[in-house]
């Protein structure tokens, strides 16, 4: 099957021709497959934010291409708005973009811009609200009366209501407490599972990426450092650490156990998997 997004030799340079010239993204190539959950991790300044703003055409590549379903998104610059409807981008701290009098109207902003009206508009607003756990009676409230976590859900619903083929999330759980983080990630997981839609998740939290992504892209200094399944990526724990990146705490425990001579599979990155391995080791050890 053709990948839904193809990024080919993408480079983005800021301040061309000034002394401040600097490439935030340099010759990046990768694909996003239809229906997958792709995690992107990297430091602040690794080029993550610049990269994802190319996926929906908010930024134009200095060189290289972004293909959506096989078509260059900049082939017809006049139609770039349609790309933004198909690739929904949720920014960091999206609650700061809310502006309407009611939650309902705010969620409706995106789909209304697409030209949806009447029953069709109503359907996608209500469905998006349901997906993020906003109750019907909250729809008529002002978004500014809600709690921080709820505001963020409304902002997320505002993008989901456009029913994009690809959902790109930039640090969706930043600043939330553990319960709020888990709830929001559960919403996103459910959405992914039930709608079979493609998700690109950018996060600093290794644990969040480890628990959700099918495939991981690690960025460093405007380049792709590594890519692969979580098991493949976290198996290279030492490399990640020496690149100044975090690894999940479980990976660090597994690495420390290997240092102590226990034969732990380097690809372990969840507590459950490590527990299983250790229990298997004990049984094996008892047999000796």
């Amino acid at each position: 099957m053709e990948p839904i997004l193809q990024i080919k030799h993408l480079t983005h340079t800021y301040g061309v021709g000034t002394p401040f010239q600097r490439s935030a993204v340099e010759d990046m190539s990768f694909e996003v497959r239809e229906g997958e959950f792709l995690g992107i991790m990297g430091h602040t300044g690794s080029g993550k934010s610049t990269l994802i703003q190319h996926l929906n055409g908010l930024l134009k590549p200095t060189s290289g291409q972004v293909l959506l379903a096989g078509k260059d998104i900049w082939a017809e610059p006049k139609k770039i708005r349609e790309v933004r409807f198909r690739v929904g981008l949720v920014f960091q701290y999206p609650e700061y973009q809310l502006f309407e009098e009611t939650v309902y109207k705010d969620i409706a902003f995106g789909p209304a811009n697409m030209g949806r009206t009447g029953a069709e508009l109503d359907r996608c607003v209500r469905e998006a609200a349901r997906l993020v756990g906003i109750r019907d009676e909250q729809l008529d409230k002002s978004p500014f009366e809600l709690s921080g976590g709820q505001k963020r859900r409304v902002a997320l619903a505002g993008v989901l209501a456009m029913e994009p083929d690809v959902l790109v999330l930039d640090e969706p759980t930043a600043g939330l407490d553990p319960a709020g983080r888990e709830n929001l990630m559960a919403n996103i997981r459910d959405y992914h599972r039930n709608k079979q839609k493609t998700i690109v998740l950018v996060s600093h939290s290794m644990d969040e990426i480890a628990q959700n992504a099918d495939r991981i892209l690690v960025l460093k200094g405007a380049h792709i450092l590594m890519s692969g399944t979580p098991a493949e990526v976290f198996a290279r724990g030492e490399e990640l650490l020496s690149a100044g990146l975090d690894v999940p705490e479980v990976t660090r425990i597994a690495m420390a156990l290997r240092d102590r001579g226990l034969p732990i599979d380097p690809a372990v990155y969840t507590v459950e998997a490590l527990e299983r391995q250790l229990l298997a080791l004990r049984k094996g050890g008892a047999a000796c």
Binding site: R252, L257, R260, L262, L281
Partner: peptide, 13 residues
């Protein structure tokens, strides 16, 4: 992490 690894290693060996 280090303490934890020590404890597990000690218990399993």
């Amino acid at each position: 992490v280090e303490e934890c690894a020590d404890a597990i290693a000690a218990a399993l060996q």
